[in-house]
């Protein structure tokens, strides 16, 4: 009996710790949502309002009216989709070669791919900026997306998955007169759907959340991405925190949905590469 009581107490205290930890982790997000729902008087009061009192969507209306957030969102979606499709295409082909074709210099080339992971993007950003400027691709979607459509990480991730596909399948397909491209499209890609899904979500998230590159090469307001767009909201004095936070919530919503729906797959795929790789 006392043992059972002890267990119950232990359980309750564990839940208590879990809830406190969750509140601390979630607090910044909670704050963003709260502030985005406050009116101008509430947001300027002291002590600060810690929770919303009513569903007041004025700030969202104001943010959408005064900054072209929908246009920014469209730009971000375009950039992210282009990068995602590009990475899936290039990484699939490269990972296939590394996993199924036994060719000379394979290790050297594979190391070359891995080496790109160790070169910080910031170390190459000046020449890239000058290059994109010189071909007048600043303020274009190709300028936003093209430098990122190859991925050492994605190639590595897919290769690890492809290696699990039995070699006999490959040999049998080749015997049947199904060439490399045919084998890739009819067998490998359908089997590797989970890994492709992981890469798709990951590259989309990464690109959608990019900051430095779009900051450098988009000077036209009509080509800005959401991340730059809302960061600039804060610079303008006419916007109060509640309007800025409405913008923040607006920008966060797509990635939250993506994250909630793909949570399991994203995490399983990424950790399989990181922990066991």
């Amino acid at each position: 009996m006392s043992n059972q009581l002890q267990n119950t107490i232990k359980k309750i205290s564990l839940y208590l710790i879990l809830v406190i930890a969750a509140i601390i982790v979630i607090y910044p997000i909670w704050t963003a949502i709260t502030i985005s729902l406050l009116d101008d008087k509430q947001v300027a009061q002291y002590p600060p309002q810690l929770y919303p009192t009513h569903l007041n969507l004025d700030n969202f209306r104001r943010a959408l009216e005064q900054a072209p957030l929908l246009r920014y969102l469209f730009n971000s979606m375009m950039q992210s989709s282009l990068v995602m499709i590009g990475q899936l295409f290039t990484a699939c082909l490269a990972a296939y070669a590394f996993a199924f074709i036994d060719f000379k210099w394979r290790n050297v080339l594979f190391l070359t791919f891995l080496a790109t992971l160790m070169i910080p993007w910031e170390a190459t950003i000046i020449p890239n900026y000058l290059l994109i400027k010189s071909v007048k691709w600043d303020n274009t979607f190709q300028g936003l997306a093209l430098p990122f459509i190859a991925t050492g990480f994605g190639t590595f991730l897919l290769r690890q998955f492809f290696l699990k596909i039995p070699k006999e399948l490959h040999d049998a397909a080749i015997m049947d007169g199904c060439g490399h491209l045919c084998f890739l499209t009819t067998i490998v890609i359908p089997l590797a759907r989970p890994a492709l899904g992981t890469l798709a979500v990951y590259s989309f998230l990464q690109t959608y959340n990019q900051y430095l590159w779009p900051l450098l090469i988009t000077s036209d307001e009509s080509m800005r991405t959401v991340q730059i767009g809302i960061a600039l909201l804060q610079d303008e004095e006419r916007f109060m925190f509640n309007t800025v936070m409405a913008g923040v919530v607006f920008v966060l919503l797509p990635t939250f949905f993506l994250f909630i729906f793909s949570n399991r797959q994203l995490i399983r795929g990424l950790t399989a590469g990181a922990v066991k790789g």
Partner: peptide, 11 residues
Amino acid sequence: IAVSAATSSLI
């Protein structure tokens, strides 16, 4: 994981 550096900085 789903939060961007820009939005978290604003918060």
